[in-house]
Design a protein around this nucleic acid. Structure first.
Lengths: 236, 236
DNA sequence: ATCCGCACGTCAATGGTGTTGACGTAAGGT
DNA sequence: ACCTTACGTCAACACCATTGACGTGCGGAT
């Protein structure tokens, strides 16, 4: 149970692996992201990552204490990517929409890591920056502090909750994902009007709508409600 | 790969296990919920569940095709508990609020299981009943089908997503939960106005608000927006 | 220029996981 | 009372994360 991890700063004596690769924390995180992108979330195992790196699987434990630490490092990379190259425009509604959709998209692009990250308060720089940005958008739009805080809370939690929800669906093993999709056709499609009148009546629309995420519409509803709460003046 | 599962209805020839237990789908689901509540989500493995039941692990495959099917059954049980002893009142807004809060409460009351279940479509009886109920509330309130479907989707996903989010927080080991709570005081409380003006200004309100779930307010915002979309007549 | 300590890549083993084919017992229908 | 077969059990397979032991060869020190 001795800790075989050496902090990235103090690292020395790098030695190529049998297959010639030179390992580093950065290379491992990027290889993990590529592995997931290319072979799907379920392909990320220590053994496969080792193989992809051209190293013995156990070499990873020189860089990360366990797979959890590795996934957190991957997740941290994701949070950064969500905010990369964007600044507020000054239009609160457009800004909130963009932030919400960016968080959602970034998490969905790497579901496995997102699942670990979405439920935690990290207190790390990227998270702090996001909090400051959202609060700033609301306060500068003229919402009084008490209201801004409640809206902030609802908005951020909703973005993270939906991101986790949709990421979880993407992270399922392919078999389970296929099952969930088929359930709508096979089970809900067969219900008859006399026992389930509403489902039967709405089924075609329902089956179509459930194929995509409910977040964009839920976000728009929230923005509608927030606009209605905005204190007079420039209803902007 | 032959299917060893016999549908619950046609089941016969029940035989006690070596240790005297008489298995049933219902007993297995309840044992699984107890196992999770008592030993945590990571304790749910086929082997341990078999042991808890006093049966050979492989006996489970006579009742569920695989662990995924078992999880779906557990999820459906939670949905069922959320609806127990409730029927719509005819006031769409009050009904939607009650359903949302009930789902949220049911999942939070069993956080470990909720985490495994909240992301799945079960296609099982309790879920079907919930879908029919929510759709019925919307359609009978006068929402046209297309709109009712989109609102249904946003509403249900929001409830499940927040339920999972808040269940995840409750499911953390006590030490980690305390740490996450302290982050707000320790990290966000120390930010200065010159680098983070908005967080600094709103901090007391923020720290207080973040202690409880953002769901009730988010739900109210969604209901506000839905009310505004309601086609004329009796504004709900 | 040489030496030496130890960092780090490798190997092998441990104990976990889900899942399945084969088997025999005993329960139900006849 | 028989016969069929449901279903509980056993054993095995292939995978997983993790860790103790080991020795190679790099880097710093001399």
């Amino acid at each position: 149970m001795t800790d075989r991890v050496v902090p990235e700063g103090r690292r020395q004596r790098r030695r190529p692996t049998k297959q010639g690769a030179v390992l580093s924390e950065r290379l491992i995180v990027e290889t993990a992201l590529n592995l997931i992108a290319w072979h799907g979330a379920e392909a990320l195992s220590v053994r496969r990552l080792g193989a992809a790196l051209g190293a013995d699987p156990s070499a990873l434990y020189r860089y990360f204490r366990n797979t959890d630490a590795l996934l957190l490092a991957v997740a941290d990379e994701l949070i950064g990517r969500a905010q990369q190259g964007w600044t507020p425009t000054g239009y609160w509604r457009a800004d909130l929409r963009t932030i919400g959709l960016r968080i959602h998209a970034s998490y969905c692009s790497n579901p496995q890591a997102a699942l670990l990250a979405a439920h935690r308060t990290t207190g790390r720089p990227h998270e702090i920056r996001a909090v400051e940005t959202v609060l700033g958008v609301l306060r500068e739009a003229g919402f009084p502090d008490g209201l801004a805080v409640r809206i902030y809370h609802a908005f951020v939690d909703q973005a993270l909750a939906f991101a986790a929800q949709d990421a979880a669906a993407l992270a399922l093993p392919p078999a389970a994902r296929a099952t969930d999709a088929e359930v709508w056709q096979e089970v809900y499609g067969r219900l008859t009007p006399d026992t389930h009148p509403h489902i039967a009546a709405a089924f075609p629309l329902l089956a179509a709508d459930m194929r995509s995420s409910g977040y964009p519409f839920a976000l728009e509803l929230m923005l509608d409600a927030v606009a209605a709460l905005k204190p007079a003046a420039d209803a902007g």
